[in-house]
Write a protein that binds this DNA or RNA. Sequence first.
DNA 1: TTTAGTTCCGCAAACGTTTGCGATTTCGTT
DNA 2: AACGAAATCGCAAACGTTTGCGGAACTAAA
Lengths: 340, 340
Amino acid sequence: MKSSQVTIKDIAKALGVSPSTVSRALKGHPDISLETRNMVNELATRLKYEPNAIALSLKQSRSNSIGVIIPEMVHYFFSSVLSGITDVAYDAGFTVIICQSNEKHEREVANVKALYSHRVDGILISISKDSETFDHLSYLLENEVPLVFFDRFAPGIACDKVIVDDFDAAYKATKHLIDLGRKRIAHFCGAQKLIIGRERLEGYKKALKSEGLPVDESLIIHAENFEMARVAVEKLMELASPPDGIFAVNDLTAIGAMLTLQKRGIQIPGQIAIVGFSDGRFSGIVEPNLSSVDQHGYEMGTAAARLLIKRILAKDPFYPPETVILQSSLIIRGSSDPKF
Amino acid sequence: MKSSQVTIKDIAKALGVSPSTVSRALKGHPDISLETRNMVNELATRLKYEPNAIALSLKQSRSNSIGVIIPEMVHYFFSSVLSGITDVAYDAGFTVIICQSNEKHEREVANVKALYSHRVDGILISISKDSETFDHLSYLLENEVPLVFFDRFAPGIACDKVIVDDFDAAYKATKHLIDLGRKRIAHFCGAQKLIIGRERLEGYKKALKSEGLPVDESLIIHAENFEMARVAVEKLMELASPPDGIFAVNDLTAIGAMLTLQKRGIQIPGQIAIVGFSDGRFSGIVEPNLSSVDQHGYEMGTAAARLLIKRILAKDPFYPPETVILQSSLIIRGSSDPKF
DNA sequence: TTTAGTTCCGCAAACGTTTGCGATTTCGTT
DNA sequence: AACGAAATCGCAAACGTTTGCGGAACTAAA
């Protein structure tokens, strides 16, 4: 970094006016004569003057930047969210400081400290998996820095959040299978200590019940990745009456199931229909294409950023917390419906 | 943001000492007596004092933050790079400001301005596809802000860069197929206006030539996505003597080819062996698993960040630009070698 | 010619921190 | 008792901006 970047003082000195005049001229303050205003502007562009955002931040106690804490960016969903966040932040003139907690609570705490130190105007966070205490977040609230959760939120912390309705999404997926005439629908579920795991399971059950189908516990198997899916499929196919439909907690699991079934010579969707839950862009690379729930990560990012910026810009930022629930949409493809 | 966050002055006032003393006490300066040092530290933790990084930045003309400009984060490769960057930045005590150019030159320029305004200590950039003028980058160099390119770089701008040896990677992939005894190897190539497209094609040709195989233009087809792969396969299979191996410019293309071939009943790798070029984590979800080139995105991120931080921290930061060329590695799986 | 009103600009303080230098106190030596 | 050194600490300036207030110069009305 060059020791002397061009500053307002430099311009002032060169023109024989005061820094205040330059500052005002630069932002078109009416107190400054057209003549000097032009002088200043011309020299500023000639010198390629760029305002020092740091000094500005210090002066106004507003940094025009927001912080984001994300568990891992190397996931299609999270990177979509990030993309949405940066896009609306950019449009609103905010810069984005991004931290990665790598799913570690300790690092999440450090991230919060760093962002607070940089006096960001607000923070967007999706909490890490192993976070169980939330003092670092209450600290933020006590110090009145606006906080917005996206996707994963901390219980007991009252602030804005945007989440997806996992329950409803699971319901819709299961209902879709039922509408296709399937009677014995299995669910490959996720870890039950996570909210999303529980919600999706409940949505599945709700659909069965409301359509008058029995909930058969032998059709509910914990399987949340490619390998577990293989095992689960083997187990299912040994049943006296195997399933005619599978709703999997994520796409990778669904694809694992699909490939294993196909290897056994089972027709999809003819004998077994399959619906996944979107983690990314996998759906198009299997045959038949995978029906799946689209979680709208990008929209989650834009919604969260908008919530945050709205509160930052509010004259009175202490209105009650808002929650926006994103509706995920079921994308029907060939793995469940032969028409596609 | 609370109007009054606790500051060094507050502590000073409360303790009846000067701000200078508090500042020195906080960082263990020997001029301060143990007694006051303890007093200060105790009160600081009790008040949960956090230093104001903004004020610090202004004072020392160093922000301890670095900027990143990336075309699109929603790609496995780029998000891996980002992940590598943030990890080493975190360890070095730097915060990371991330901007997304969305492949638009105009936005890239705006990003550079914003980062410069925030007086980041250095910038990491992978230029957008439609960037053809680079004044914004020379501007940075003129103002002595350290710049490091990763993956995509601007010709004529002399600064550090880390790139992957696409030529060598393509060579290795093709050579692998030849070593397996394949004689007619097709290449599904990318757009030739991009450097990576050309490099990979050349690497392919080089391998053929050095092994004494002819370069058959009818085996080189422009196909860089799932759909184009299907078409390309049809075309290839109508040839008098169809290929016995395919090297594809990316994984999605390779998988597209694979599925189309399998639908035709062709054995993989028995009749046709396939190697892709890694975009992500697709390799494990096809059967047989896809051989592919791993581009080490995370390592690219760490390397680039290290290069930048090294220059930022250097007493004399004007040593000649360095280029690190990352070796990508060929991961052999079942789609090319039946032993896997 | 005085008065009042405009127009244009500069002074100075402030944001929170660091740091060279000088001032004051304390102590140990003679 | 007196002196020098060591131990502690405060003053003030500085980083680059913004902004309320006041001041000077000028114009126009009486």
